Simulated assay, not measured.
Amino acid sequence: MLFYSKEQLELFDQKDESRFESLEELKSIATKCQRCALCDQATQVVFGSGNSNTGLMLIGEGPGADEDREGIPFVGKAGRLLNKILEAAEIEREDIYITNVVKCRPPGNRQPTINEMKSCLWILAQEIKLVNPKIIVPLGSTALRGLLDPNGRITRMRGRWFESKGYYFLPTFHPAALLRDEKKKLPVWKDFLKIKKAYDRYLELKSQDKEI
């Protein structure tokens, strides 16, 4: 059983339509956000990137030093590993959408606090509504707790499918965790095989103009 917070329920409330016309409009607003203190030390807001009309969205924790410098999510060591995983699973990065729970780099790459996460959830909620993916992959414990269960543990929930209001979630380890512990590589690979299978099914149904 998942215990959604009020903010998490609002993330997936499809009756609450997006307040913005496009991701570009949302990005222009997000870059001016000052709802928490992270923006004071960050170089820039790191907004999501990728296909705005995809069935697959990957959501990480927050920007690191490379992302803070370049303004693009997952471009550092963890991002390069993620690219290899996607390539091996035959998922084109440019065909999917990738973002983070928080959009500004926490000092020293520490985990975002609960209040920092809550301050950023409104942006993520609008990203989800605008992209409207069928499959959402929380990468790591921060994304898991921000999206699904505030008390969730990635070691217990990874590799399992969860459904909420028409969205399907499969949490897995963050690529950065694989850099620290190679034993996590095989579980993540198995998870991405599941993701690939579900994503292929999504694309098949979409090509046939069938209900997804």
Rank of each mutant, 00 (worst) to 15 (best):
A88K: 14
R93C: 00
N100M: 09
E90V: 04
T99H: 02
E116T: 08
A89D: 02
I123S: 00
A125D: 02
T99K: 03
P106C: 10
Q111I: 08
C104E: 10
L82W: 09
P107A: 12
T99P: 01
L121F: 12
W122G: 00
Q111Y: 15
R105Q: 15
V102H: 10
N109A: 12
E87Q: 11
E90D: 13
N83M: 07
Q111F: 14
Y97N: 00
L81E: 01
N109V: 04
W122D: 03
D95A: 14
D95F: 05
N100L: 09
A89H: 07
K84V: 02
E87H: 05
A89T: 06
R105K: 15
T113I: 03
W122T: 02
S119A: 15
I123H: 03
A125F: 00
L124F: 08
L121S: 11
E94I: 00
G108W: 13
I85P: 02
E94H: 06
E87S: 07
K84C: 06
V101C: 12
K84L: 14
T113P: 05
N83T: 06
I85A: 03
E92T: 06
E90T: 04
L124V: 05
M117W: 02
N100I: 04
N100R: 07
P107C: 08
A89I: 05
